[in-house]
């Protein structure tokens, strides 16, 4: 079998052309694509590793921040609890003070009310006493209260002596204003004349008197001049009466405020 040297040459050239063509159209593009892909994979792996490292760092940062946040939260909570406790104590104190003040005010109001009641009772008692006395005197002795009061006052006036008499005499004589005779009831003209006469005789002078009716006056009749005073009073009678009534009243008002104070204090302390 002879070798055809033309065919050998042609085939060698053909093969070399094939090598060049395949190098141009097959190996280079394919290897380039593979290299590009491998580079991209390597880049993406490096990028992923970098991102993972970043993520780990960020996770650590967040963890640290979270820990700090928890710590701060615990501190703030503790602080807020302390402040709330202090505020609670303060509010409780204020509430107690307010309750005490209210209780005190209530007690004051009760005292005031009691005093007013006492005054009212005194006045009513006085009126009643005067009324009863007037009626008894009228019925039994056939005389008037005003007459008897005036008589007693005049007797007391005439019975004055010593320093009291001299002081009052001096005051009546030296006073520029009229001396004032006050009475709880209106004095009839006869009694006014009797009093005027008795004063003139007692102090041996012509004294100008001014008669006034003062319903609030506890005593029956009083004479005042420049700060000096002489009076017939039923205060002793009233004092004993007031004492008796006062003891009776003290039992009830004391019991009520205590129960009320308790009922107000309970919601604050709960």
């Amino acid at each position: 079998m002879p070798i055809d040297w033309f065919t050998v040459t042609a085939q060698a050239i053909n093969f070399l052309v094939l090598v060049w063509l395949l190098r141009r159209f097959l190996y280079k593009p394919i290897l380039k694509a593979i290299d590009a892909r491998e580079k991209r994979i390597a880049d993406e792996l490096a990028d992923a590793a970098a991102k993972q490292a970043d993520a780990k760092k960020e996770r650590d940062d967040y963890q640290q921040k979270n820990d700090e946040f928890d710590k701060q939260r615990a501190e703030l909570l503790s602080q807020a609890t302390d402040e709330a406790n202090k505020e609670k104590q303060r509010l409780l104190g204020e509430a107690r003070e307010a309750a005490d003040t209210m209780s005190s005010d209530r007690m004051d109001a009760l005292d005031k009310e009691l005093k007013n009641l006492n005054q009212t009772i005194t006045r009513r008692t006085q009126d009643e006493v005067f009324s009863v006395a007037r009626k008894v005197l009228t019925d039994l002795a056939d005389t008037f209260l005003e007459e008897r009061a005036t008589t007693v006052f005049i007797r007391q006036l005439r019975g004055m002596n010593g320093d009291a008499k001299s002081d009052l005499s001096k005051a009546l004589k030296t006073s520029t204003d009229n001396a004032i005779v006050r009475s709880a009831f209106e004095l009839p003209t006869e009694q006014q004349a009797e009093i005027q006469t008795a004063i003139n005789e007692t102090f041996s002078a012509e004294i100008d008197l001014k008669f006034e009716t003062t319903p609030d006056l506890v005593s029956g009749i009083e004479l005042t001049a420049s700060g000096n005073k002489i009076a017939w009073s039923i205060s002793d009678y009233l004092t004993s009466l007031e004492k008796g009534v006062g003891e009776l009243l003290k039992v009830k008002p004391k019991a009520k405020p205590e129960s009320k104070a308790k009922s107000q204090a309970e919601p604050l302390t709960s």
């Binding site: 094939l18 395949l22 159209f25 694509a33 991209r40």
Partner: peptide, 21 residues
Amino acid sequence: TWGIMLVLVIGSMLITRKLSM
């Protein structure tokens, strides 16, 4: 031989013409 060369080269050209990276 030319036929084989054509098949190889044209096949390579057709495939590598739209290579995906």
